[in-house]
């Protein structure tokens, strides 16, 4: 089975791109399944189910979604193997721009959109910087110049990634993406023992543990304070 980890900011078009790509893969007889991760709510699983794609949904609820991903990926891969998939795609939203769910030996795809603004590539951390493939969406509604500047900036923060424009509505570019995602010679049996490409941010403070009160007296653990400097009189 092939495994691909797709991630990207909320509403960047991940599901639309994956659905169009799966349609292209299906026409070549590749059996694809999806696991959709989100935090509080998603009904993208219905969109996959309607397209006849085997799908699982994981809501992290009160947990950080990327931590939740890391704790579940092993079982998910087992599910994919048992479902006899040729390709398993996991989809998760990067919510704080700091985490990234990519594993070292597994293809990582970041989906990012032209509408998010030309400074976005600079704001997103390992989610964009350590992806193998960057898919840029919504190119059909911005100008050629904006597409060029956006792609150049993505390339500055991640020069080794392949950058591919894909239109999630018309599917332009999805066939091309599908040829890059599925390689019958690449087989993943299990992800046990694999490593994340980038450590997730440290977070273990009183608020992680359910504290709701504000004030220094209630803050324990990994607490970091802003440097506000001296007030200007």
């Amino acid at each position: 089975m092939n495994l691909t980890i797709v991630s990207g900011p909320p509403s960047s078009g991940k599901t639309a791109v994956i659905l169009k790509t799966i349609a292209a893969l299906k026409s070549r007889g590749v059996k694809v399944g999806v696991v959709k991760f989100d935090c509080l709510y998603t009904d993208d699983d219905k969109a996959y189910a309607e397209a006849g794609v085997p799908v699982q949904k994981g809501l992290s609820g009160a947990l950080c979604p990327d931590h939740f991903f890391a704790s579940n990926i092993e079982e998910i891969v087992r599910w994919g193997k048992q479902s006899e998939l040729d390709l398993l795609i996991t989809e998760s939203a990067g919510l704080c721009n700091r985490c990234s769910p990519y594993l070292k030996q597994v293809k990582g795809v970041c989906v990012i959109d032209n509408l998010s603004g030309i400074n976005t590539p600079r704001k997103i951390g390992p989610l964009l910087k350590s992806a193998d493939l960057v898919v840029i969406t919504k190119g059909d509604i911005v100008s050629q110049a904006e597409r060029e500047v956006f792609a150049a900036r993505v390339s500055s923060v991640n020069p080794r990634a392949l950058i591919l424009p894909v239109n999630g509505l018309t599917g332009q570019g999805a066939y091309e993406l599908s040829t890059l995602l599925y390689n019958p010679d690449l087989q993943v049996e299990t992800v046990q023992g694999m490593q994340l490409r980038f450590p997730m941010p440290a977070a273990l403070c009183s608020y992680c543990l359910g504290e709701t009160r504000i004030g220094q007296a209630f803050q324990l653990g990994n607490v970091k304070k802003m440097d506000l400097g001296e007030p200007e009189a």
């Binding site: 509408l115 603004g117 059909d140 509604i141 911005v142 100008s143 050629q144 904006e146």
Partner: peptide, 12 residues
């Protein structure tokens, strides 16, 4: 290729 279509707008 560069593309131009009537749906394209400036967003910057």
């Amino acid at each position: 290729v560069a593309q131009l279509s009537q749906n394209m707008n400036f967003v910057m």
